[in-house]
Simulated scan of single mutants.
Amino acid sequence: MAVGGTVLAVHLSLQQPATPRTTTADTARPQQPGAESPAPIDERDVAALAPRRVKVTADRGALVELAWVLPARARDYPVVVQRSPVEEGEQPVTALDQGATSTRLAGLDPGTGYCFLVGVPLRISEDSTVAWSEPACIRGAKARPTRR
């Protein structure tokens, strides 16, 4: 799982957060390995699967704890956390287990403000679709405007 999570994190770090693609489908489903052409994912499904109520539950300087609520259907998907800013060479996305509702992020600069997004990857490809949460920011950081 560590290798798969690393590949997922690297791929997602290249993606723009909160930019769902508008297509049509009845429901979003986890993509099956080897599937030739996955069903399109409707923008309403993306919004329905996005993590909710993301909050920083503890800020200990170099260590931050986050918690969020996942919609029931989103529990069938892996979860990722994106942080901003990141230093050159650092990985901005952390891959978590399927259905995760909290995490600890270590190695942060205690003097820097950060924003965090929690996402549910619905499709990982050149045209990835991730259901992103609203940002949770600390230490005076301001989230970049996102396109929805």
Rank of each mutant, 00 (worst) to 15 (best):
A47F: 08
L96A: 03
P71M: 08
L96M: 09
R52S: 02
I41V: 14
A95F: 04
S128A: 13
W68A: 15
D45A: 13
E65Q: 12
P92F: 02
C137D: 06
V81P: 13
S37I: 07
A131P: 11
K142E: 14
L49D: 05
P110T: 03
R29E: 15
V3R: 14
E43V: 15
L12P: 06
I124E: 05
T57C: 04
E88V: 10
V3Q: 15
A35C: 08
G61D: 00
S84D: 15
P33F: 08
V10A: 09
R147K: 04
P38Y: 05
E134S: 12
V3I: 15
V69N: 08
T94I: 09
A58M: 03
G107A: 04
S13Q: 14
C115H: 03
Q31H: 05
G5K: 14
A72H: 10
K142A: 15
R75W: 02
G99Y: 06
A39H: 02
A74H: 04
C137F: 11
D97L: 05
L70T: 07
D127L: 11
T6A: 14
R144S: 15
T6H: 12
E43L: 13
R123S: 12
S133V: 03
T6N: 11
V46D: 04
V93D: 08
V130S: 08
A2N: 13
E90H: 02
Q98S: 15
T27S: 09
T27Y: 06
R73H: 09
V93F: 11
S133W: 05
Q32V: 15
Q32I: 15
Q82I: 06
G34R: 02
R123H: 13
T24H: 06
P78I: 14
G34K: 00
E43C: 06
A143V: 11
V7E: 11
A143S: 08
G99L: 07
T129W: 00
S128Q: 12
V10W: 03
D127V: 11
P78Y: 10
D42G: 01
R52M: 04
V80C: 09
P78Q: 10
G4L: 15
V130E: 09
L14F: 12
Q31A: 13
P33W: 09
L49A: 09
A67W: 03
T101L: 01
R83F: 10
T103R: 01
V93H: 04
G113H: 05
V54I: 09
I124M: 09
T57I: 13
S133Q: 04
L49Y: 05
P30Q: 02
P110W: 01
T27Q: 06
T22R: 11
